[in-house]
Simulated assay, not measured.
Amino acid sequence: MTTPARLDCIQHPGHESCACYGACVPDSGDAERSGIYGRGRDACHVGVATEAVDIGAVSRVYGPEGSKEWIVTAGVIATGLVLGGWAVRLWWVGGRRKAGA
């Protein structure tokens, strides 16, 4: 369970990013940890204990619904693969043209 103590939000033109900070008591019975980063504005209700999934990170827990952070990671990996494939293709085609000249 995690109990949010504060909600910090930063607003930019057309965008708002919120982080919820509080304390977490692991289901394993370990000691309470404070300063834990949790979910954003929609799921953060200061002072109300909510379910949380402790993934073992020092300062982070997730809600039962999971996280969408994997989307950014997948995008970065896909971009790297595309750029790497493009570079290999240029090298491959350039080498074949020199050999045929």
Results as ranks from 00 to 15, higher is better:
S34H: 14
D30E: 09
G38D: 01
V58C: 13
R39G: 12
G94Y: 00
I55E: 15
A52M: 07
V61S: 05
A78D: 01
Y37I: 15
A99E: 02
G84W: 01
L81F: 10
K98N: 04
R89S: 11
G35L: 01
P64V: 11
R96H: 05
Y62S: 09
W86P: 11
A31Y: 00
G84I: 04
G66R: 11
D30S: 08
I55K: 15
E69N: 15
S28R: 00
D54P: 06
A99W: 01
V72M: 05
D30M: 07
V58Y: 10
V76D: 01
D42K: 15
V88A: 09
C44T: 04
R97V: 02
R39C: 14
I71E: 15
G35H: 03
W92Q: 03
V61Q: 01
G29V: 05
H45C: 14
V72H: 06
A49R: 04
E65W: 15
W92N: 05
I71H: 15
E65I: 14
G38I: 00
L83P: 05
G95W: 01
I71T: 12
V48G: 12
G75H: 00
I36P: 01
R33S: 02
W92D: 04
G80T: 05
L90F: 12
L90E: 07
G66H: 04
R41I: 12
I71Q: 15
A99Q: 02
G56W: 01
V46A: 09
T50Y: 12
T50E: 11
G85N: 04
G80N: 06
A99I: 01
S28V: 00
D30Q: 07
P26R: 00
S67C: 14
P64I: 10
Y37E: 10
E51I: 13
P26S: 00
G40Q: 08
R33I: 00
W91G: 07
V53W: 10
D27Q: 04
A87V: 08
G56S: 10
G95D: 02
I77C: 03
A87H: 13
T73A: 13
A57F: 12
V72K: 05
V82S: 08
S67T: 12
G85F: 03
V93Y: 06
L81C: 08
W86C: 12
A57D: 13
R89V: 11
A31M: 00
D27R: 03
R96L: 01
V93C: 06
W70Y: 12
V46K: 06
G80F: 03
V53G: 11
V53Q: 07
E32A: 07
W86L: 13
T50L: 13
R39K: 14
R60C: 10
G40S: 10
G47H: 07
A49L: 07
G63V: 08
G29C: 07
L81M: 05
W70V: 08
A87K: 11
E51P: 09
D30V: 07
L81S: 06
V58I: 14
G84S: 10
D54Y: 03
D27G: 02
A87Q: 07
W70C: 11
G66F: 06
A57W: 12
V76E: 02
G47Y: 02
S34V: 14
A49Q: 04
W92G: 02
R89W: 08
I71N: 14
G38K: 01
I71W: 13
